[in-house]
Simulated assay, not measured.
Amino acid sequence: MMRRFGKRLALVTVMAVTCAAPAASAQQAEPPAAKPGKLINAGDVLSGELNAMKVRGGKKGKRVATYLVTSEPRRLPPPNGLCDLETGPETFQLITSSDAQAAQLKGFIGKEISIKVDEVACAQDAGQMSEAVVTKWSVVTKH
């Protein structure tokens, strides 16, 4: 009886090792976790495609243009950090403070743009359409 038990135990052990080997190699084949993006500080340049959306806002619900820059993932300086994202935000909403700034952006819609970031934070309000908000910025022109 002990011989049969020993043979069965050996067979079960071989089967367990055989089944576990592919699972272990599959775990090793998974890509490593995404690394956080490069840190963006005040004065740094953010480049990406500029998109525009019309959203209702203000007291009377007027349609207002909202501008978004889609870029590589970037980390924000503390206390904002990664904006509750694994790699940092990829979309940045540009807040326009004047009609002149809005007019300046209109020519870049759908194109690559570079902006100098002076103030940036994680999106927190319900009306914000991106992961991060750039409240103070200027367009970088190439000479």
Rank of each mutant, 00 (worst) to 15 (best):
S71H: 10
Q28K: 10
A52R: 09
K38G: 00
A52Q: 08
G81D: 07
A103L: 08
R56Q: 13
N80M: 04
L68N: 10
P89M: 05
V64W: 07
G58M: 10
K54H: 13
G107V: 09
I95S: 12
T96Q: 00
K54C: 12
K60F: 11
Q104P: 12
M53G: 10
R63W: 15
G110N: 05
S47P: 12
T91C: 06
D84V: 13
E72T: 08
V64H: 09
L68Y: 07
P79G: 00
A52V: 10
G107M: 11
M53Y: 12
L46D: 02
S97G: 15
A42C: 01
P78L: 02
A102P: 11
L94M: 03
M53V: 12
C83L: 04
T70F: 14
V55R: 11
P36I: 00
A102N: 11
K62R: 05
L46G: 02
R74V: 09
V55P: 02
K35F: 00
G48A: 03
R63T: 15
S47H: 07
I109E: 13
L50V: 04
P73C: 15
V55E: 09
L105Q: 06
G88E: 03
S47Y: 06
D84P: 13
N51A: 13
P89V: 04
G57V: 07
S71Q: 08
P77R: 06
L105D: 06
T66E: 14
L50A: 03
Q28M: 11
G61R: 03
L85S: 15
D44F: 04
L94E: 03
K35Y: 00
Q104E: 15
N51K: 12
K106G: 05
K60Y: 11
G43Y: 01
I95C: 10
T91A: 05
A26D: 07
